[in-house]
Structure formats: C-alpha cells, structure tokens
Amino acid sequence: MTALGFLHPGHCAEDDYPRIEQLLAGDIRVDLVRADPGQEGGEDGGLTDASLRLGAPHRLAAGVEQLRLSGAEAIVWASTRGSFGYGQEGAREQVRTLATAAGMPASSTSFAFVHAAREVGAARVAVGATYPDGAAAQFAEFLRAGGLEVTAVHAAGVTAERAGAYGEAEVLALARAVDAFGADAVLLPDTALHTVACLPALERELGKPVLTANQVTVWEGLRLTDRRVNAPELGALFRREPIVQV
C-alpha cells in the first residue's frame, strides 16, 4: 500500500481526491486533511494576502501530524495560489520546511504543474485561470521560472466558491479560451475546480494534454514515492506504463 498525504486549503473540490483514488491502483491511498482547520474557504484568487497566509509554515504544520499518523509516505501542499504566490525561491523554502516538519518528501501543486508539463513533453503551455489578472500573471511567471514557455494566459477573475461551482461546460470554456495559441498543453491551475470527471472530455475537445490542479497534485505525490500508475481516465499525464519492480 502506498499512502499519499495532501494538505488542502479549504472546502472547494475536495471530492476530486476520493474520485482520483478510485481511478488509481487499488494499493494507493489518498489522505486529505485541512491545512489549518481554523481557516475557512478555498483558494480565493482575489484575496492575495489570504492565499499567502494559507501557505504560512504554522498553518501547514497544523495538518502534518495527522498525515504522519495516517502513514503517509509523501506530502503535497494542495494549493496552487498558496505556493506560487511566494515565487520560486519562497515556494522552494516552503516545501523544504514542510518536508522537515513532516519527515518525508514534500512538494506543492505549483511545482507539480512544472514537473507534470515536463512529463507529458509540453515545453509550451497555456494557462486558463479562474484567478484575477495579477494572480494569473504571477502563476505564468512561476512557470517561466521553471523553464516553461507560456503562450497565453486567460484570467476569469472569479472567487474560489464560484470556481468550485463550475460544471463541465464552464471548465471546457475556460480551457478553450487559451487553446488557440500553439501550446503543447493547457493548464487549469485552481484547486477549487472540479476537473477529474471531465478530463477525458477536455482532452478529446482540445486534442492535447490538459493538466489540472487536483490531477497534478496527486500525480506529484506518486512521483515523490516513485510510483507510476496507468490510469487513462485521468488524462495523458497518467497514460504511462507502471514501473515493474524486479
């Protein structure tokens, strides 16, 4: 059994995680806890200071012990805005602090996007964000600092609660808004979006890999534990043959 631990920023799209667990191999467990039970809400892209407070070390530490007791082998801070908002160096320090506190490998959703884009061979990416312009531009800069070319950025400028209420049609529209700019993959960075159920439809519609926040977050946990899982329902990122142990 491989146990993956995730610190989540709020109440938006948490149900994507058990859905992903159902689509993975039967020996993978996905454990999700609130980063700080006293902090309400999800990733509200319009509240920069609140998003950064979510990623503060004392808030992340609040859920670490619970994940340690669950037997997690790796931990991922499941917040895009709460990691890229610190910039590359700040986000790296955030991950180092989390790994030290947890005593296990750690990462965050922002780094997961960079690693996942490389995994699917996407050097050029387009970003369909629910964030306001400033936050969307900051995420694009984070990607560039990670070595990716960003061909287009669309900023819808809605709250986490509104993003969490998006259905498949609205998620598709968000992806289409940046698809005509020569990107190898389209990235939808908000963890508040429900995307797992519509990943096959997204990739059929666009004809290219689509990387979404909750999808790449779980993939990053698997990467940290050296697990590779073939789960086509989770998109091109998971259409890889599993590593055979000999």
Rank of each mutant, 00 (worst) to 15 (best):
P189K: 00
E220K: 02
Y131D: 00
A35L: 07
G221F: 07
H8E: 15
L67T: 01
A169V: 04
T159I: 00
H154S: 10
L7M: 06
E168K: 07
A136G: 01
R19E: 12
L172H: 05
V64S: 09
G157P: 09
L202D: 00
A145N: 09
P232T: 11
L187E: 00
I20D: 02
F238N: 04
I75Y: 07
A101T: 13
E170C: 07
A74F: 09
S70P: 02
E14S: 12
R96H: 04
A169W: 03
L52W: 03
R223F: 07
K208A: 11
A126S: 06
R34G: 12
D31R: 11
R239T: 15
T109H: 05
D27P: 14
H194S: 12
A201P: 00
F142L: 07
C198P: 10
R239H: 12
E43G: 14
L4C: 01
R162K: 05
D190V: 04
H8R: 11
L187T: 00
A183G: 13
D226L: 09
G10W: 07
Q138R: 14
A106K: 14
A74C: 07
D226C: 03
T2E: 09
M1D: 09
L211S: 02
V196N: 00
A201L: 04
F113W: 06
E89H: 13
A56W: 13
G45M: 04
G82Y: 02
A173W: 04
H58W: 12
D31Q: 11
T97M: 14
A165G: 12
L24W: 15
R144P: 09
P132N: 13
S51V: 10
H58T: 10
F6W: 01
V33I: 05
G5W: 08
A155C: 12
A3T: 14
F238P: 11
L54T: 04
V114I: 15
S70W: 06
L4M: 04
D179E: 15
S83I: 03
T2W: 10
M104F: 10
E21Q: 15
A136F: 02
P18Y: 11
A122L: 03
P18T: 03
Y131K: 03
R228D: 01
V244W: 11
A192G: 04
E89P: 02
L69T: 11
G41I: 02
D226N: 15
P189S: 00
G41H: 01
Y166S: 01
D184I: 08
D31P: 08
V216S: 04
T130L: 03
E233F: 02
G182S: 05
D31Y: 13
D16E: 15
E89M: 08
P209F: 04
P189F: 00
E65H: 07
N214G: 08
G207H: 10
S70K: 13
G5T: 08
F111N: 05
